[in-house]
Write a protein that binds this DNA or RNA. Structure first.
Lengths: 220, 220
DNA sequence: CAGATGAAATCGTAGGACGATATTGACGGA
DNA sequence: TCCGTCAATATCGTCCTACGATTTCATCTG
C-alpha cells in the first residue's frame, strides 16, 4: 500500500486545524496557544507541536520563536502572489486534463454535481465542498502527482477564510460558475478553451481582490 | 523583523539533512533511524521528530507509521511530474523577472559569476552553488514571494542526488549554460526569450531523464 | 507619563516511559 | 528444501515531566 494503514494523531490534528479554518472555527491571525489546544484536542504537546510544524510547512500557520504559532493572515500582496502562482498550476492541470482525453466525464461529473447542488442551497459548506471536489477531480484527470503536493490550496483556504465576510453571494456563484466552465472545457478535451477558462476565473478573482477593503487583509 | 532573531534546533536539523542530501552524506532511499540521528546530531528526539515532520512536508523524507522515515527516492514518473510542475513555476519566475525591468543586472550578475566559476573548477560543490545562486536570484528578481515557498526545489535536489552518478560533466556544463541563458534573457528584459530559454532547459532535462538507466530511479 | 522592573505566561528542548507495530529469525511440518 | 507460525527484537508513536529561555504585561518609580 502507498497510504499508511492507520492515520496518526499528528495527521488528525493537522486536519482538524485545516478544516477548522475552512469552517471558521479558526480565524486567520488567531494565536494558537499550545496548552489550550492540547486540552481542546485531547492530545499531548509533542503531537501538537509536530502537527504545527507540519502546518507551518504548508504556510498555514507561522511559528515565531518563543512567541508561538498563529494562523497566517495574508496581506493583499501575498494574496496576489499566491493567485499568480496558483493560476499557473491550475492552468497546467487543466491543460494536462484536457489533453489526456481520459475518462474525464465520470470524474468531472462529480464536480458538476456539486456545483449544481451549490446552486440550490448555496450555503458556505457546500461551497467548500465544490472547491474541494473540483480540485480533487482536476488533479486526478491531470494525472500529475506532483501537482496536488505543490499547489498551495491550503494557503488559498486562508484567503477564502479572510474574504468570506466581504464576499457577496453573487461573487460566490460566479466563482462556482468558473469552476463549472473549466470542468466543462476539460471534459471536452479542448485545451485552449480550458486554459482560457482558467485565465478568466483568475482574472475575476484578481478583480475581486482589488475591490476588497483593506481590513480584509493583513498589514504589510 | 520578518525572520526570527535566532534559529531554532529544528531548523538547524532540517538544514543539516537537506544539505546532507546535496553533499551526498544522505542518500535517497536511506533509512533514518531516530535513535542514531539523535546521537549523531546531538539533539533530543522531540526536536528530531519535529524536523522530520517538517521535511516530510517538503516531500524530502517519507514517514511510514511504525516504520520510520527515509529519504525519498523518486520514480522516473515522479521525476517527470516534478519537472513538469517545476517548469511552469520557473517560467513564471522568468517571465516576471524579465517583465519587471528592475535592477536585474546586479542581481543576476551573481548567478553569472557563479556559472563562470563553475566553468573553471567544475566540481560538484560549485555546481550546487550555481543552482542555489541562480534560483535565489531568479526569485528575487521575480518579486513574487509565493514562488520560493511553492517551488519544489528541495525535491529537485533529491532528483539531482539520484542522478549524480549517471550524469556526465558535459551534461552538467550544458545545464549550467542553460541557467546562464535564462539569466541573460531575464537581464535583457526579453520576456519571450526568457520563457524560451526555460523551455529549452527543461526539454534538455527531460531528454536526459529519458536516457537514464532504470537503476537511477525507484521502482514504481 | 516614560522607562525600568519583576512576575507570569508561554515556548524550546531534553529525556524518560510504555504501548503499538513492523521486522527478523528460529522453529517445525509438509 | 520450502513455507507458514510464532516468539524476540527493534523501532516508532504518544504521553509525560522538567527546566531554562524569552516574551509579555502589569506594576513601580522617577
Amino acid at each position: 500500500m502507498n497510504a499508511p494503514a492507520t492515520i496518526g494523531t499528528t495527521e488528525k490534528v493537522a486536519d482538524a486545524i485545516r478544516s477548522g479554518i475552512r469552517t471558521g472555527q479558526f480565524v486567520p491571525g488567531q494565536h494558537l496557544v499550545e496548552a489550550e489546544l492540547t486540552l481542546r484536542l485531547g492530545i499531548s504537546r509533542s503531537s501538537l507541536r509536530e502537527a504545527l510544524r507540519h502546518l507551518s510547512g504548508d504556510g498555514i500557520v507561522a511559528i515565531h520563536r518563543y512567541r508561538g504559532a498563529h494562523i497566517n493572515r495574508l496581506t493583499r500582496r501575498e494574496v496576489r502572489d499566491l493567485l499568480e502562482v496558483l493560476e499557473q498550476l491550475v492552468r497546467l492541470a487543466a491543460r494536462l486534463g484536457a489533453a489526456s482525453g481520459h475518462a474525464n466525464r465520470s470524474l468531472m461529473d462529480a464536480a458538476l454535481d456539486a456545483a449544481r447542488r451549490h446552486d440550490e442551497d448555496g450555503d458556505h459548506r457546500s461551497y467548500i465542498a465544490v472547491r474541494q471536489a473540483f480540485y480533487d477531480c482536476l488533479f486526478e484527470v491531470a494525472g500529475n502527482r506532483e501537482l496536488p503536493r505543490v499547489t498551495p490550496l491550503r494557503r488559498a483556504d486562508l484567503f477564502r477564510a479572510q474574504i468570506r465576510p466581504y464576499q457577496t453571494r453573487a461573487q460566490q456563484d460566479s466563482h462556482t460558475e468558473g469552476y463549472r466552465a473549466i470542468a466543462q472545457t476539460v471534459n471536452d478535451g479542448d485545451v485552449e478553451a480550458a486554459e482560457a477558462a482558467v485565465a478568466a476565473l483568475f482574472a475575476q478573482t484578481h478583480a475581486m481582490v482589488d475591490e476588497l477593503p483593506d481590513v480584509a487583509f493583513d498589514v504589510d
